[in-house]
Design a protein around this nucleic acid. Sequence first.
DNA 1: AAAGATTGAAATGTCAATCTTG
DNA 2: CAAGATTGACATTTCAATCTTT
Lengths: 152, 152
Amino acid sequence: MSNGKRATGEELAGDELAAWHGMLEAHATLTRELDRRLRSVHGLGVSEFDVLITLFNGPGRGLRMTDLAEAIMFSPAGLTHMVTRLERDRLVQRAVDPGDRRSFLVRLTPDGLARLVAARVTHNDVIRALFTTKLTSAQLRHLAGIWAAILP
Amino acid sequence: MSNGKRATGEELAGDELAAWHGMLEAHATLTRELDRRLRSVHGLGVSEFDVLITLFNGPGRGLRMTDLAEAIMFSPAGLTHMVTRLERDRLVQRAVDPGDRRSFLVRLTPDGLARLVAARVTHNDVIRALFTTKLTSAQLRHLAGIWAAILP
DNA sequence: AAAGATTGAAATGTCAATCTTG
DNA sequence: CAAGATTGACATTTCAATCTTT
């Protein structure tokens, strides 16, 4: 019984340990390299890229602060700080939501759109080079199923 | 062609996108919950736990700063700050390496060992509850193989 | 000079408290 | 009062520069 699942209280071992530890290592390795490349080539960190791509995919290239924070798994305060930086760099713009004046709509500026489009190429290249092209189609399919089973 | 791998320059889509995005979401979700639980029950964050468990697995319950930093994927400076905090809390102890006086050996104290042993139960319980028990044995095996294919 | 480690400054993100609008 | 967002204080981690030993 050197592999497989164990009972509560026992140590993680075998595939259980490899599955968990592998995710930690893979995540750290991939996001660090992605961050390094995005930062050196485009002056954007992974977090900044996530904001821009999420806005890009939103209706009208924009989103409310709350919805944006939820989408990228940021705290409200954290997002405020980040958007303040991005607005200073003229990549996004805030405007009061006419429908609910408590809300701010964040939108990509033309500069932000241009930076995003350029960075997206690097982003996808890195992910393919370090991740998806190292896996078979079956492995990619399995992985998608695994995340679906774990996430609510 | 709504699934599978794409050529360079194209957008991530289908299983490729699900595999990548799923890892980001799963990692964030799992490590946050793990951190919350470890912190509230044992007063340890995930990073602190990683240091303690890595020392525990080291020869003689200790490691050199450099080797410890490498094992937990920390920068040298980051590890120095962290070990300073852990030493203040009497969970680890630094001592000059007799063999090479540039090095410091970090060791678990009795307090550190006790905290680790207690926290490890919570740690393993959370990982099983949120992760490994939601997957079949085949999925765990696939996952282990996937990380092996990606990591160098 | 190179390796091991540390120091202080800077960047990033979270929490608690607060302000405004619904 | 609840929801949306912000503010300031704090914790954590990294980078560049530095110190000591090999």
